[in-house]
Design a protein around this nucleic acid. Structure first.
Lengths: 230, 230
DNA sequence: ACGATTTTGTTAACGCGTTCACAAACTCTT
DNA sequence: AAGAGTTTGTGAACGCGTTAACAAAATCGT
């Protein structure tokens, strides 16, 4: 069996590189900033600076979506914003369910950045009976056992794992079983999922460990590097 | 002026690719898992599976550190764990300061995953006078104005921004001014820092937006893709 | 109307990272 | 001791992403 994607036809489904997809939300935010500043038109240079990327890279990224700029002029901020929003599905709101209402889960449920970006925390779930029934960020916490019902009733396709690492795989299994097809995993553990389910992982300590590595090199370079010549 | 790094001499400072550095903490965790399971020796296949990467990639990554395995046998789990820990500076604890004690900052200050990975939250700082003086996760919240003193006294080199996006640049400036040379930015905003300061960015909503994009394609593929052949 | 200027969209070169494939090196069995 | 079987370390091929460079297309000034 072969799946052919419409190559350039309707304007929606081409093969956009992963690296580009990951930057589209960044461009979206930069465009929002420009709108707030009352800017109606911008060049790729302007936008690239606001997004923190190379202008050529920005133009190449946008070229995967279509030709939404005008040569000699630039991009209409509002128009481009809409085109990108449509491309990444931000013309609608996405309901998500958070599993694990500990410190991190609670913080995520209250996170302001979600609502302004089309993410709505629709349900909270926890395995701990003591937490079930309590209200967090104005949402009543449900039992992990009710996941299938919640997911189906509210047509949720995205789940967030905010549990300890030991529970992550179990939770992932139950999310998939309940019909979730995209998972954002904050637990410090690798989770296995069947084909067709997307998993992204955010590991808070790894980011710090990477910084620590570079710190160590900065400090260590005083002794292990040799400064030569003029 | 030219800076030469010792190419292969003492065993510490070579030019390890960024992509490899980002994976070393993952290997470290996988090795810890193996240790807990009582495994004393493992092959690159075993370890790669635990880390969720291609075995060849794992071996190549490790080859940047040195030759710590034995052909025909594999890797001594404890020995390799120590070598990686030393390479990424995890033989010591790293003190960090968190700026912004809102929902996210509070959650981070209580995050269990840090302590087990050599990260110690040494100080909490907030600009809001109402929060200064309160105790969060057993740590007294200090004023943002005290940042220089705190950073110097406790020899902190890593700072975490957990403020709203609007405050991010201001906080970054003050962190740099206080002597911080590595920043982990959770605020949904781009921060500019001088050369010599490392910044890494974690954007919680972007990760979800990327998932939403793929979800949209999954849903949309019913109509825009054509399934051909058998 | 037309040349000068601006800025996009795109092609081509480049570099980094991943993966394959295999020789080198080790253990185990006989 | 020697051959069979493992597994590492690495050179080479490959692919993806980034960047530079430029032609195409628009505006502006005269």
């Amino acid at each position: 069996m072969t799946i052919l994607r419409t190559p350039h036809a309707d304007g929606s489904a081409r093969g956009i590189p992963d690296a580009t997809v990951a930057r589209l939300p960044v461009y979206l935010r930069a465009l929002n900033t420009l709108t707030e500043q009352g800017v109606a038109t911008c060049s790729s240079n302007d936008l690239a600076e606001n997004a923190g990327v190379n202008p050529a890279k920005l133009r190449k990224d946008l070229s995967y979506l279509g030709s939404y700029g005008t040569r000699g002029v630039g991009y209409d901020v509002e128009y481009l914003r809409y085109q990108i929003a449509r491309e990444i599905g931000q013309t609608q709101d996405w309901d998500v369910v958070i599993v694990g209402v500990g410190n991190l889960g609670s913080a995520l449920s209250a996170y302001q950045g979600f609502s302004t970006r089309g993410i709505r925390v629709a349900a909270l779930v926890d395995a701990d009976p003591q937490r079930v029934g309590t209200t967090v960020s104005g949402i009543e916490v449900s039992s992990l056992d009710d996941l299938p019902t919640i997911v189906e009733e509210r047509a949720i396709s995205i789940g967030i794992i905010a549990t300890p690492g030991t529970a992550a795989q179990e939770v992932a299994d139950r999310l998939v079983e309940a019909g979730i097809t995209s998972i954002l995993n904050f637990a410090p553990a690798l989770v296995q999922v069947p084909d067709g389910v997307d998993v992204r992982k955010v590991d808070l300590s790894i980011e710090l460990q990477i910084l620590a590595y570079h710190e160590q090199r900065k400090a260590g370079s005083d002794t292990t590097e040799k400064v030569v010549g003029a």
